[in-house]
């Protein structure tokens, strides 16, 4: 999503800073040729489709796909009154918050302990970062397999404690499964950022707290946590974006949005309504709403940078 460099560049652009070398090459057609590939791809595959989506969101196609009618914001009004859509919205919020909380919480605890073992930190890091390299669909497949109702290892053990696991039938269990799979994949990323943040705290600060009589747990809560709060905020936005958009593959592999629509989050619904349901206008309106959400998240992140850049 929005990286440090992106934020830096954006900040410079908005502030009107010189984003250029003091010296530069004399003017020629060359720079246009240099940016042409990037711009062409951006125009053809990003801006054009996005504006198409915006345009289509204002149309309603007739049932045979033969003609369409310009209806202004009717598609949005329909969505607004559609209980399924509102449910999906709420579901997405719950899903994202839980994924972010679970994966950030786990990563925070692991990083907190890992930074204490000065020599072993890199060893543990090596063992904890692999899930990043696992494709979302694959992560989904691993968890589907482990929780397969008839064969899976977890349902087998869960039966002993009286839990009857079947995420094909039980919506809450399906939700729990996609949350676990999504959080699992993201732990590695969060862990790396937390570990880096903690390792950049000067040792002297920790030592000063120790001399003041604060034990390890207390130091973690009163010194380390506040000092890494910028990282927490940054990760929170990144994780929300991840949960909103990049978990598509996991859901597609694990539940296809089911059972019923128990795990249909917004991105999945756009896909489903557009490709399966062939409701072009409705799907386009949903796309537009998602775009607005991404823009909002980017703005939130940018506001945070502005505050941070000051010191």
């Amino acid at each position: 999503m929005v990286s440090f460099y992106t934020r830096h560049s954006l900040h410079a652009a908005l502030m009107g800073h010189h984003m250029l070398k003091r010296v530069h090459f004399p003017s020629s057609p060359l720079p246009y040729m240099l940016v042409a590939p990037q711009l062409a791809i951006t125009l053809v595959f990003f801006i054009w489709p996005a504006s198409q989506a915006m345009y289509q969101s204002l149309l309603i196609e007739d049932a045979f796909g033969l003609g369409s009618e310009f209806v202004w914001f009717e598609n949005f009004e329909v969505l607004w009154q559609d209980q399924h859509y509102l449910d999906a919205f709420l579901r997405t919020a719950v899903f994202s918050v839980l994924v972010a909380a679970l994966s950030m919480g786990t990563a925070l605890i692991l990083a907190g302990f890992a930074q204490r073992v000065v020599k072993g930190a890199m060893f543990y890091r090596t063992l904890l970062i692999w899930p990043y390299a696992v494709a979302p669909v694959l992560a989904g497949a691993l968890w589907v397999f482990m929780f397969n109702p008839t064969l899976g290892i977890f349902p087998y053990f869960l039966e002993f404690v009286g839990v009857d696991w079947n995420h094909y039938l039980n919506g809450n269990q399906a939700m729990a499964l996609v949350i676990m799979a999504a959080a699992w994949k993201q732990v590695a990323y969060n862990f790396l950022f937390y570990l880096a943040a903690m390792q950049s705290i000067p040792n002297s600060v920790i030592e000063a707290a120790a001399i003041d009589g604060a034990g390890p747990g207390r130091r973690f809560v009163t010194i380390i946590l506040p000092l890494i709060s910028p990282t927490t905020f940054f990760l929170l936005v990144i994780n929300m974006v991840y949960a909103f958009f990049e978990t598509f593959g996991i859901i597609h592999a694990v539940t296809q949005g089911g059972p019923g629509s128990a795990t249909t989050i917004l991105v999945y619904k756009v896909f489903n309504d557009g490709f399966v349901g062939l409701d072009l206008g409705g799907s386009a309106a949903q796309s537009v709403i998602l775009m607005v959400l991404v823009v909002a998240m980017t703005v939130v992140q940018f506001r945070y940078v502005e505050r941070k850049v000051e010191y």
Binding site: Q38, L39, A53, F248, L290
Partner: peptide, 17 residues
């Protein structure tokens, strides 16, 4: 224009793309 691509993940413009 390059910046805008950030705001348009493929998931939100699936069909037209």
């Amino acid at each position: 224009m390059i910046f805008i691509t950030l705001m348009l993940p493929v998931e939100v413009r699936i069909l037209p793309t």
